[in-house]
Amino acid sequence: MKKKKIYFITATNTDVGKTYAAEKILIKYHKKGKKVGYFKPIETGVVSTPLDGSKLLKLTKKFNSDFDFSLNEVVPYQFRLAASPFVAKKKSCIDIKNIFKQTKKLLKKCDVLIIEGAGGLMVPINKNYFMIDLIKGFQDLFNSKTILISSSALGSINDTLLSQKALHNYSINYQWYINLYKDKKDFKKVTLPFYKEYFDKISFL
Protein backbone atom coordinates (compact mmCIF):
# COMPACT_ATOMS: atom_id res chain seq x y z
CA MET A 1 0.00 0.00 0.00
CA LYS A 2 1.30 3.42 -0.98
CA LYS A 3 2.21 5.73 1.87
CA LYS A 4 -0.06 8.77 1.87
CA LYS A 5 1.25 12.27 2.51
CA ILE A 6 -0.64 15.20 4.01
CA TYR A 7 0.57 18.78 3.97
CA PHE A 8 -1.27 21.34 6.07
CA ILE A 9 -0.80 24.89 4.77
CA THR A 10 -1.05 27.61 7.40
CA ALA A 11 0.21 31.18 7.61
CA THR A 12 1.19 33.98 9.94
CA ASN A 13 -2.10 35.76 9.18
CA THR A 14 -4.91 36.00 6.66
CA ASP A 15 -4.20 37.00 3.03
CA VAL A 16 -0.58 35.88 3.26
CA GLY A 17 -0.67 33.27 0.50
CA LYS A 18 -2.02 29.93 1.73
CA THR A 19 -4.03 29.32 -1.45
CA TYR A 20 -1.07 30.30 -3.62
CA ALA A 21 1.18 27.93 -1.66
CA ALA A 22 -1.37 25.11 -1.91
CA GLU A 23 -1.54 25.61 -5.67
CA LYS A 24 2.24 25.45 -6.03
CA ILE A 25 2.45 22.24 -3.99
CA LEU A 26 -0.37 20.64 -5.97
CA ILE A 27 1.50 21.41 -9.18
CA LYS A 28 4.80 20.17 -7.71
CA TYR A 29 3.47 16.74 -6.79
CA HIS A 30 1.43 16.41 -9.97
CA LYS A 31 4.66 16.90 -11.94
CA LYS A 32 6.19 14.13 -9.82
CA GLY A 33 3.48 11.78 -11.02
CA LYS A 34 1.52 11.72 -7.77
CA LYS A 35 -2.25 11.69 -7.49
CA VAL A 36 -3.02 14.92 -5.68
CA GLY A 37 -5.99 15.90 -3.53
CA TYR A 38 -7.19 19.13 -1.92
CA PHE A 39 -9.15 19.89 1.26
CA LYS A 40 -10.17 23.20 2.82
CA PRO A 41 -12.20 22.23 5.89
CA ILE A 42 -13.42 25.76 6.62
CA GLU A 43 -13.82 28.79 4.37
CA THR A 44 -15.38 32.07 5.47
CA GLY A 45 -16.41 35.07 3.39
CA VAL A 46 -18.38 32.78 1.07
CA VAL A 47 -21.06 34.81 -0.72
CA SER A 48 -22.16 32.38 -3.42
CA THR A 49 -19.31 29.88 -3.73
CA PRO A 50 -16.06 29.32 -1.80
CA LEU A 51 -13.54 31.04 -4.06
CA ASP A 52 -10.37 29.37 -2.73
CA GLY A 53 -11.95 25.94 -2.55
CA SER A 54 -13.54 26.03 -5.99
CA LYS A 55 -10.37 27.30 -7.66
CA LEU A 56 -8.15 24.58 -6.25
CA LEU A 57 -10.72 21.80 -6.54
CA LYS A 58 -10.93 22.59 -10.25
CA LEU A 59 -7.14 22.36 -10.52
CA THR A 60 -7.09 19.14 -8.52
CA LYS A 61 -9.66 17.48 -10.77
CA LYS A 62 -7.63 18.55 -13.80
CA PHE A 63 -4.63 16.73 -12.34
CA ASN A 64 -6.50 13.78 -10.80
CA SER A 65 -9.71 12.64 -12.50
CA ASP A 66 -10.27 10.07 -9.73
CA PHE A 67 -10.74 12.86 -7.20
CA ASP A 68 -14.48 12.89 -7.83
CA PHE A 69 -15.62 14.88 -4.79
CA SER A 70 -18.08 17.75 -4.82
CA LEU A 71 -17.23 21.26 -3.67
CA ASN A 72 -19.29 20.75 -0.51
CA GLU A 73 -17.25 17.67 0.33
CA VAL A 74 -13.95 19.47 -0.17
CA VAL A 75 -15.11 22.60 1.68
CA PRO A 76 -17.58 21.14 4.22
CA TYR A 77 -17.90 24.27 6.36
CA GLN A 78 -18.76 27.43 4.44
CA PHE A 79 -19.81 30.70 6.08
CA ARG A 80 -20.83 34.02 4.58
CA LEU A 81 -19.25 36.37 7.11
CA ALA A 82 -15.57 37.13 6.46
CA ALA A 83 -14.43 36.49 10.03
CA SER A 84 -12.90 33.79 12.16
CA PRO A 85 -14.77 30.48 11.93
CA PHE A 86 -15.93 30.87 15.55
CA VAL A 87 -17.63 34.17 14.75
CA ALA A 88 -18.69 33.36 11.19
CA LYS A 89 -20.43 30.11 12.13
CA LYS A 90 -22.80 31.96 14.51
CA LYS A 91 -25.02 29.20 15.96
CA SER A 92 -23.83 26.52 13.55
CA CYS A 93 -21.61 23.66 14.67
CA ILE A 94 -18.15 22.84 13.35
CA ASP A 95 -17.59 19.15 14.08
CA ILE A 96 -13.85 18.49 14.31
CA LYS A 97 -14.36 14.72 14.22
CA ASN A 98 -16.25 15.14 10.95
CA ILE A 99 -13.27 17.01 9.48
CA PHE A 100 -10.96 14.10 10.30
CA LYS A 101 -13.53 11.61 9.00
CA GLN A 102 -13.76 13.49 5.70
CA THR A 103 -9.97 13.52 5.47
CA LYS A 104 -9.92 9.72 5.46
CA LYS A 105 -12.40 9.67 2.57
CA LEU A 106 -10.37 12.13 0.51
CA LEU A 107 -7.13 10.24 1.15
CA LYS A 108 -8.55 7.16 -0.55
CA LYS A 109 -8.43 8.97 -3.91
CA CYS A 110 -4.95 10.51 -3.76
CA ASP A 111 -1.30 10.00 -2.83
CA VAL A 112 -0.76 13.55 -1.55
CA LEU A 113 -3.47 15.58 0.16
CA ILE A 114 -3.03 19.34 0.52
CA ILE A 115 -5.05 20.87 3.37
CA GLU A 116 -5.51 24.62 3.48
CA GLY A 117 -6.25 26.28 6.80
CA ALA A 118 -8.19 29.47 7.45
CA GLY A 119 -6.38 32.56 8.71
CA GLY A 120 -3.46 32.18 11.10
CA LEU A 121 -2.59 29.75 13.85
CA MET A 122 -4.60 31.31 16.66
CA VAL A 123 -7.80 31.82 14.67
CA PRO A 124 -10.62 30.37 16.80
CA ILE A 125 -12.69 27.55 15.35
CA ASN A 126 -14.67 26.88 18.51
CA LYS A 127 -14.50 28.66 21.87
CA ASN A 128 -11.49 26.74 23.14
CA TYR A 129 -10.25 25.19 19.90
CA PHE A 130 -7.98 27.07 17.52
CA MET A 131 -6.51 26.46 14.08
CA ILE A 132 -3.28 25.32 15.70
CA ASP A 133 -5.23 22.64 17.60
CA LEU A 134 -6.59 21.36 14.29
CA ILE A 135 -3.07 21.26 12.87
CA LYS A 136 -1.86 19.34 15.91
CA GLY A 137 -4.76 16.92 15.47
CA PHE A 138 -3.77 16.26 11.87
CA GLN A 139 -0.17 15.65 12.90
CA ASP A 140 -1.16 13.24 15.67
CA LEU A 141 -3.73 11.32 13.62
CA PHE A 142 -2.23 11.38 10.12
CA ASN A 143 1.44 12.30 10.63
CA SER A 144 0.83 15.37 8.50
CA LYS A 145 3.54 17.90 7.63
CA THR A 146 2.91 21.57 8.32
CA ILE A 147 3.97 24.41 6.05
CA LEU A 148 4.05 27.93 7.50
CA ILE A 149 3.81 30.84 5.07
CA SER A 150 5.09 34.29 6.04
CA SER A 151 4.46 37.62 4.40
CA SER A 152 7.29 39.79 3.14
CA ALA A 153 5.56 42.96 4.35
CA LEU A 154 6.95 45.30 6.98
CA GLY A 155 6.06 43.85 10.38
CA SER A 156 6.27 40.27 9.22
CA ILE A 157 9.23 39.45 11.48
CA ASN A 158 7.03 39.75 14.55
CA ASP A 159 4.27 37.61 13.02
CA THR A 160 6.78 35.01 11.84
CA LEU A 161 8.55 34.60 15.18
CA LEU A 162 5.31 34.46 17.15
CA SER A 163 3.90 31.82 14.80
CA GLN A 164 7.07 29.74 14.95
CA LYS A 165 7.10 29.94 18.74
CA ALA A 166 3.49 28.75 18.86
CA LEU A 167 4.30 25.80 16.59
CA HIS A 168 7.28 24.87 18.76
CA ASN A 169 5.14 25.06 21.90
CA TYR A 170 2.68 22.62 20.33
CA SER A 171 5.51 20.31 19.19
CA ILE A 172 4.43 20.73 15.58
CA ASN A 173 7.05 20.01 12.94
CA TYR A 174 6.97 22.52 10.10
CA GLN A 175 8.66 23.93 7.05
CA TRP A 176 8.80 27.70 6.66
CA TYR A 177 8.49 29.74 3.45
CA ILE A 178 8.29 33.44 2.70
CA ASN A 179 5.77 34.61 0.14
CA LEU A 180 7.60 37.51 -1.50
CA TYR A 181 4.68 39.59 -2.73
CA LYS A 182 4.33 42.66 -0.47
CA ASP A 183 6.89 45.45 -0.02
CA LYS A 184 9.14 43.51 -2.39
CA LYS A 185 11.50 46.43 -2.99
CA ASP A 186 11.89 47.16 0.73
CA PHE A 187 12.08 43.52 1.87
CA LYS A 188 15.82 43.17 1.20
CA LYS A 189 16.53 46.32 3.17
CA VAL A 190 14.13 46.21 6.13
CA THR A 191 13.38 42.51 6.77
CA LEU A 192 15.88 40.19 5.08
CA PRO A 193 18.95 41.38 7.07
CA PHE A 194 17.45 40.05 10.30
CA TYR A 195 16.34 36.78 8.72
CA LYS A 196 19.85 36.22 7.37
CA GLU A 197 21.34 36.83 10.80
CA TYR A 198 18.76 34.81 12.74
CA PHE A 199 18.01 31.78 10.53
CA ASP A 200 20.37 29.22 9.05
CA LYS A 201 18.11 28.73 6.05
CA ILE A 202 15.58 30.97 4.31
CA SER A 203 13.18 29.56 1.72
CA PHE A 204 10.85 31.38 -0.64
CA LEU A 205 7.71 30.16 -2.36
Rank of each mutant, 00 (worst) to 15 (best):
N72L: 11
T44A: 00
M131Y: 06
F142D: 04
Y29V: 08
D15K: 07
L167H: 03
F130A: 02
K55P: 03
V47A: 04
K105D: 03
L154Y: 13
I157G: 09
L162D: 01
Y195S: 00
I114K: 02
F204E: 15
L141K: 02
K182D: 14
I42S: 05
V46C: 05
T12P: 03
S150P: 08
F138A: 08
L57I: 03
F69W: 01
S65G: 10
K108A: 14
A21E: 15
D159S: 14
I94F: 02
L51P: 01
F100T: 02
R80F: 15
L113A: 07
K109L: 10
T12F: 06
S84L: 12
K40F: 02
L192K: 01
P124H: 13
D68Q: 05
N13C: 12
T146R: 02
V112Q: 00
A22S: 04
D52S: 00
Y38L: 04
K28D: 11
K127Y: 07
N169E: 08
F199Q: 12
H168M: 14
Y20S: 04
K34M: 04
K24M: 13
I135H: 02
I135E: 06
S54H: 07
I147L: 07
Y177F: 15
S171T: 15
P193T: 04
K196Y: 01
K28S: 00
V190M: 06
K127H: 12
D159F: 12
K185H: 12
K24C: 11
Y170P: 06
L59S: 13
L167Y: 03
V75P: 03
A166V: 14
K55S: 05
